[in-house]
Nucleic acid binder design. Structure first.
Lengths: 341, 341
DNA sequence: ATGCTCTGCTAAATCAGTTTAGCGACCACT
DNA sequence: AGTGGTCGCTAAACTGATTTAGCAGAGCAT
């Protein structure tokens, strides 16, 4: 890779100047008294030789690598990770930085290894990302330099970026109230573990809180709340069947994520009910399936790309201590309608 | 980041030896005549100081960075990308390497930039990945060093890794024949563009070829073939409705991917038909939705994680010139049954 | 006593940049 | 004539590793 690249010395020689001069010109240093002609000769030489600086050499001296480590627990499992990374990549490119990506798989040994690997490479900072929004404590090793938590918060008060799940909860509830739903709104996806343990999830309690707050303000209370051990389609399916077996049928259902909603759709289909005429459905995440469902599913989008971007900006530009909340936009789709009767 | 790290000089001083000695001991060099005691002193000093070599300094001298560039057209859009990256990350870690990830977004300027950025950082090799299996030509700039194409082939005969779509086509057809389907097998997802332009897709023609070959051998021909402009759920939905409007109803349907199958399920549900009693469905990709559908969808899995792994292995261990085919395992699920009557 | 080999180790060069300190030429002013 | 300042530029140190070349001392033979 990169054999016979021209070096700074080559450029200087061709320009008939010293390495010092060449370096200063190419770095656009102010206050050097190099002549306009010297500038031109250096630029011309660099151009002709196709000179590109060797960043390994540069960073040895400057202790800057223009490289950011993106350390996450799990990259692959959730498809959202891709958006997080894409946002970070975009922002990094805009600032002439590059991303070194590693994965810990939630394993302490791997984590240790990953962190050493990136620190050995002299990264300028670390983005420590979690794939489920949660609280965590970061390994001490990375505290020596800039760190930003992505999709996570920590007790150490490190800068962090998280989605505004509470706001999303409010939007969801408000959207239903707006349509006239009141006394027959059901909720699918209560989960003690997620709600009570911030190290498992911050989203569950925030979403619930947002929903409750808005409903309370309108003096509305939920018709039913279904607990689910996980937030997968099968649990949404079972929960919806449960709801339909009760005497009073809900006019609208809030699902804690799109996968639950997907399962709920399946149960509704089997029961011969149509969305949204018989029941409105709304949820969280904006998983790609939300748009693929028939009818398309109204939901609040996890702004992963934005979040990745913010994390890089916070890391490089410095940022506030309190968590940066990124809004979750409501995607109004066809699964919403006013209540039937 | 990493201020006050101990240097090799610190270790040498503490061990009462020269940098040369310390370097040789820590690198486990054979044939040096350093005493056992010297070895111990160096190891002890390194341990006590928590010494970690500065890889920027090392690579300046050795021209090796233990870093691989992963350059792809689009990371985020498809959720499969995550698996590709995960496989590559795993294999890289096993070999003490790390991944520098960039994205070109299919834009020539970004691509140019991305490639310069990684070459400037002296990566040891480049994995050039495409998110849809296709043929492409790689930018000349990266040809200076090791390159492996991932999920793509090129006319230059570079080492490459692709899924065995043709084998998947054979598996799919064979699975239906095995169950007794013969004269009422339909295909959803023909697509001229994908089939005819290898720079758009290699998968479409390979899958089709595999299917045809196996059916031909059994002297079976397809009942119907539906063309789709894209491979999205809505197109699968429309195609399935088309099929159901014809006099002879298929006993089994092959969809060119899971998203088409998802759409086909929707149409079947609306028509009041059940899978697999009325119609069997089988497809390609093993998207997560395949397992979430009711009934779960039989499909052939894109082995993305394996592929990412192979790419790294090929890059570091050197490999053959012809494309490495990675098998696509058949996932037998509940959407398959013998034909009805 | 001299020369030779072997052992155990080190000084110094090297990689490709950045940065510090300062040099020689020229001019202006007293 | 001496002094001081600016201009335009460079030599050399420095970053932290690896690697080449070679040195000092011991042991042994001649």
């Amino acid at each position: 890779m990169g054999r016979n690249r021209a070096t700074l010395a080559d450029v200087a020689r061709r320009a008939g100047l010293s390495k010092t001069a060449a370096s200063m010109v190419l770095n656009g240093r102010e206050g050097t008294r190099l002549s306009a002609e010297a500038h031109q000769r250096v630029f011309a030489a660099a151009e002709e030789l196709g000179y590109r600086p060797n960043l390994a050499a540069r960073s040895l001296r400057t202790r800057k690598t223009a490289t950011i480590a993106f350390v996450s627990d799990i990259v692959a499992t959730t498809r959202f990770a891709g958006d997080l990374i894409r946002g970070a990549l975009d922002a990094a490119r805009e600032r002439d930085h590059v991303l070194l990506i590693t994965e810990t798989q939630g394993d302490a040994t791997f984590e240790q290894y990953a962190i050493e690997a990136v620190l050995d490479r002299q990264v300028d900072g670390v983005i420590y990302a979690a794939m489920a929004t949660r609280r965590l404590s970061v390994p001490a090793a990375i505290l020596g330099g800039p760190v930003v938590l992505l999709n996570a918060t920590s007790p150490d008060g490190l800068p962090s970026v998280v989605p505004d799940d509470e706001g999303a909860g409010r939007s969801v509830a408000a959207a239903l109230l707006e349509l006239g739903h009141r006394d027959a709104i059901a909720l699918i996806g209560r989960n003690r573990l997620k709600e009570d343990d911030p190290e498992v999830s911050l989203a569950a309690s925030a979403r619930l809180h947002g929903i409750r707050q808005t409903l309370d303000e309108a003096d509305v209370s939920l018709l039913a709340e279904c607990f689910c051990t996980e937030w997968l389609p099968e649990h949404g399916y079972a929960a919806m069947r449960g709801l339909l077996s009760k005497p009073k049928r809900p006019s609208a259902v809030i699902c804690m994520n799109d996968r639950l909603a997907f399962g709920a759709y399946q149960a509704l289909g089997e029961a011969g009910l149509t969305v949204p005429e018989d029941i409105s459905v709304i949820s969280f995440d904006d998983d790609p399936i939300a748009a693929w469902l028939r009818p398309s599913l109204a939901t609040t989008a996890l702004p992963h790309e934005q979040m990745g971007r913010r994390a890089v900006e916070l890391l490089l530009d410095g940022g506030v201590a309190e968590p940066a909340l990124v809004g979750m936009p409501l995607r109004r789709r066809r699964s919403l309608a006013p209540p039937a009767g």
